[in-house]
């Protein structure tokens, strides 16, 4: 069994994790932790799946994929505003509002499915995304574009520099006239939009409907990729490839003679175990943005 033939499968699984992780990187670099990535991906996936099913049923088949992704992105962005408002304007504990959105998303997605489709899942659509000549899904290209734009924005634009400044030392950034509130709002909204997009990517390539298990912890894998990738676009990309690859191996190991005897759980554990070990090993040095997770109080310091 040639591993090369499995590359499309691996990329299919890596792409959404990477997209969500890049979003997570933006929000953490601006100084706001967003553990709601998981829930936001669920909301994006559910709305993308519903949109695609409804438009397909109405006869707009192929065009609806793009619209479904945009809807997923918009829904993710919309719900991330809750987190932004709570953590930036009200200086709330960011873990609490993130947890709240995760629980809310669990309920809201299936609630909507119950209202729209009278079932605890969205109805199956007939055709999801199709692969190109290389066997790749469009999501792989979307992920590459997202990474390149992210790198460019982060290091080549004024906005990116301001973003990094707000995550390291918001008071200093404020003193030179950077609008910390605006920057942090942007960071959270980028993470919401990309998480929603990632959710749409998962549901339109890997399955044919949204169920309560569609995301299955991949938002948390993305979160792990952010810290294991040390908050840089290249690091996060490599981490997402490693973690997504491990997830893919859990699926494809059955076809590889050497690995087929190994329970898939080992591959499932890998991202979490690697991140935990990395956190312990690098515990002395701090690669995280200095002000990550700390609300900024104007004039407090």
């Amino acid at each position: 069994m040639n591993i090369l033939t499995q590359i499309p499968t691996i990329l299919m699984i890596v792409a959404p994790i990477l997209i969500a992780a890049i979003g997570g990187m933006f929000t953490e670099r601006s100084g706001v932790v967003n553990i709601a990535l998981e829930g936001l991906m669920g909301l994006g996936a559910c709305s993308a799946a519903s949109t695609h099913y409804l438009m397909e049923a109405a006869g707009y088949g192929r065009y609806s994929l793009v619209i479904a992704l945009i809807v997923g992105l918009a829904v993710g962005l919309l719900f991330s505003l809750i987190h932004a408002f709570a953590s930036i304007d009200l200086k709330a504990d960011q873990t609490i509002s993130g947890t709240g959105i995760n629980i809310l998303a669990d309920g809201l997605t299936i609630f909507v499915a119950q209202i729209l489709f009278n079932a605890d899942r969205t109805r199956e659509y007939k055709i999801g995304m199709l692969t190109d000549k290389l066997g790749l899904y469009p999501t792989a290209y979307i992920a590459v574009i997202v990474v390149i734009i992210a790198w460019f924005v982060m290091y080549k634009t004024a906005f990116g520099m301001h973003l990094r400044a707000c995550g390291e030392h918001p008071a200093a950034a404020d003193s030179v006239g950077i609008n910390v509130r605006f920057i942090r709002y942007s960071g959270v909204m980028i993470s919401g939009a990309l998480a929603g997009l990632a959710g749409g990517c998962i549901v339109l390539t890997q399955t044919i409907q949204y169920t309560s298990g569609t995301i299955g912890g991949r938002g948390f894998i993305a979160l792990a990729a952010v810290s294991f990738g040390r908050w840089t676009p290249i690091g996060v990309t490599l981490a997402a490839i490693l973690f997504g690859g491990a997830q893919a191996m859990a699926v494809i190991a059955n076809n590889i003679p050497v690995l087929s005897s190994l329970p898939s759980e080992y591959f499932n554990i890998l991202p979490y175990a690697v991140t935990l070990i990395a956190l312990i090993l690098t515990s002395g040095k701090d690669y995280a943005p200095q002000a990550n997770g700390i609300p900024y109080e104007k004039g407090a310091s």
Binding site: A92, G100, N102, I103, G107, L108
Partner: peptide, 13 residues
């Protein structure tokens, strides 16, 4: 679940 999620969100507020 929605009510419980909302309660947590409101607590963060």
């Amino acid at each position: 679940l929605i009510i419980q999620g909302l309660i947590v969100v409101f607590i963060s507020l």
